[in-house]
Design a protein around this nucleic acid. Structure first.
Lengths: 246, 246
DNA sequence: CCCGTGCATTGACACAGATCAACGGAGCTT
DNA sequence: AAGCTCCGTTGATCTGTGTCAATGCACGGG
């Protein structure tokens, strides 16, 4: 479903390589990373970890899609992160997880034992630096998302989401993994609704509306064809300067 | 208006001390920080920096309140950060600012020239570590805020905001700066509306509603009295485990 | 093959919050 | 003191999105 990336190979030397952290790692540092890592796979729908769980490992997504979710007791939930290949799960320096993590497709994680990973961070400045860079990128993405959640209309939310996925389909390495005019949705309508602060019915209606207005075409439930990306961008109300989105 | 903190003194040796970064700095490191820093003050209402500005300095808020804002061309705006004393502005590793920064009260910043600050980060691991920790804390706060923006009702949003301010009034050092049952609002109704993804009218109506229901009392426009903090917490729909809010 | 289950779509209606408009009070200037 | 501006409050009405309910469609198991 999700193109699995050719990242597992490069990952065999250093799993967070596809976010460029290890271009600067020397052999010794790679060896240290390899010593504390292992791979783990989850099948679609499986819970990877829940809020309050002890956080013994941190991990990098190698393949598949997972979600980071926050909920209130009465059942309302909000996705607070969409974890695509190259994204990082868990935070050094904290020992319990704040969010529910769920695999929405089959997911492969490259896990690192947290304690030795933290030790490594202290000892290898450029890995620490890379972690900071990733955290700040995510913070920027979260802030853009706050604008979306607080101020955009349902239609703009959907359009923005499609743009986000289209952009993310281009791998940070620069390798284009998909045609941006053919968008593979990694998540269900329900997950989209949770991401966008909408209900599933509204998501559905907006898709129908965009289709009727000729902005998009649908090929099944999980593929969106975009005749003209510019039109979609206009719908999204997006002011983005093309900076990193996640 | 805002209690100015007794932080400027400790700041004279190391300005980010009140977020504990420099408890571990030795004299030499403090000296390095002092070499590249300067103080700057802004008066209420003044623009500190705008989106797209070159980012030659990063800074730590010493006193006062500032806001971080993101807007769309058509005039809609969303606050994406509330900068209170001890918060950090700017990001190492990026050279243009992504958001508008505005002083809402008189503000004192402790600024560091970005380039030498970045150099220092590379050389002093525990400062880098502290930056990472702060970024991750902000990320958590942003994610909680996403839940609020996407899923909470107007009343819950107001209640959550009041709780946030009440909590932030307790200084990270542990020094209690205010009585949590007497909340000093640092920002106007308009800024609150922009923070909460509401209109100013709705904010006003919710304040009135909470007052009529006996949850809060108002003493002027900027002071909220809370007879019972538990009641307010209930209204906020908050599931928080008391972790850091910003 | 039929039926059950899960996901998406569509319709009818309700309502929270936005919008538009008027008003009030505090502080400032002249 | 009058008049101005800024900010907040209140009222009347409108509307986008939520809610509730029915239907459609694909898939898998017996």
């Amino acid at each position: 479903m999700n193109k699995p990336l050719a990242a597992v190979e490069s990952c065999s030397t250093c799993p967070i390589r596809h976010r460029a952290v290890c271009a600067r790692c020397d052999d010794d540092e790679l060896e240290q990373l390899n010593q504390i890592k292992f791979y783990k796979t989850y099948s679609a729908g499986q819970t990877i970890a829940m809020r309050g769980d002890a956080l013994d490992v941190v991990a990098s997504v190698v393949g598949g899609t997972a979600t980071l979710e926050r909920g209130i007791e009465d059942g309302r939930t909000q996705l607070v992160g969409l974890l695509l290949p190259s994204d990082f799960i868990g935070r050094p320096g904290r020992d319990t997880l704040q969010y529910d993590v769920t695999a929405v497709t089959d997911v492969t994680l490259c896990c690192f034992y947290r304690k030795p990973f933290e030790k490594l961070l202290k000892e290898v400045p450029h890995v620490q630096e890379r972690m900071l860079e990733m955290a700040l990128d995510e913070l920027d993405a979260a802030r853009d998302w706050m604008l979306l959640l607080g101020r955009k209309t349902a239609r703009e939310k959907i359009a923005s989401f499609l743009m986000l996925i289209a952009k993310r389909t281009v791998h940070p390495d620069g390798r284009v993994l998909g045609d941006t005019s053919r968008i593979q949705l990694p998540i269900s309508r329900e997950a989209m609704a949770n991401f966008l602060g909408l209900t599933i019915e509204t998501v559905s209606r907006q898709f129908t509306g965009l289709r009727k207005d000729g902005v998009i075409e649908l090929d099944g439930n999980r593929v969106v064809l975009v005749p003209d990306l510019e039109t979609l961008l206009l719908e999204s109300g997006d002011d983005s300067d093309g900076g990193p989105l996640i």
